[in-house]
Amino acid sequence: MKFINKIGKLGMILFGLAMFAAPHGVSAQESKSFWETFGQLEMEQQVLLGLLVTVIVMVILLLGVIVYLISFMYAQMSPATDAVEKQSAFAAWWEKFDEKYVTGKMTPIKEEKDKMLDHSFDGIVELDNHMPPWLKYTFYFTIVFGVVYFSYYTVLGIGATQTEEYQEEQRIAAIKIEKAKQNALATIDENTVQFTTETPALTDGQRIFEANCAACHAKDGGGGVGPNLADEYFIHGNSISDVFKVVKYGVRSKGMIPWEDQLSPEEMQNVSSYVLTLVGTEPANPKDPEGEKMEMDSETPLEAIDATASL
């Protein structure tokens, strides 16, 4: 019985703790040293950390609720015992603390008649219990939190505004990208782009084409919203560099989207190469030619087309 009582109280602490821990997790970010380390983490890590804290708090909380409820049920179902047990000093201290700050003095059900207000509403009687101290202190704490939070962001102006947060995020990302660029091999651009005939590259190009380009240019390059890619007419030139440029920067006025934000340079090289292999094929529903007729460079090997055709 005593044991269960203790568990019940443990539940109450957990319950209270969780209540406090949650807003704390956030307010802790305001303290300098923690914030510094936190700020160095990547966005995803911060997000995950935040999530983790939230989840743990929720778990503790629910655990608390369960234990709390179980202790109630147990107390209800087990026969009453009047056995007096010896109390340790800690237990005595805890009991006092508990009564003052956590559960409060809960009137035993047998004695609740003393607590009854002498009036009933359609048979409903109210007890004159105090509100549980833990709830009261939670309320006080959230009010303090609210005042501090509001002042921190507005009156005192310490907290970053969302625009400042955004600029900081952009700055960190720019540094990261710069570093990544240095580490990466020489990147491909319109000056260094090569027509590639290697099968893996063309297979990759075909995959990219079907996922991103087929919507407007048709799966076989016959065109639709966008121009026919299989004929020998070109609007913006027929060299690999020309095609690469169209893919990379788009042709906004004609509705071609720039892909440089969505595809890596290598991917753009692969898909541009694949597009050139489509020239001369016979699509199912070819769109009428647009642009000028151009001779293909001799460097476009027919083998490449055969290679992809057999894929």
Partner: peptide, 21 residues
Amino acid sequence: YYFLPKAANRPVYSYKLSIVH
């Protein structure tokens, strides 16, 4: 506040709490 104490046939725990909340 009406149907729960009715169904449980128990007094409402705290009048003061109901005022505060």
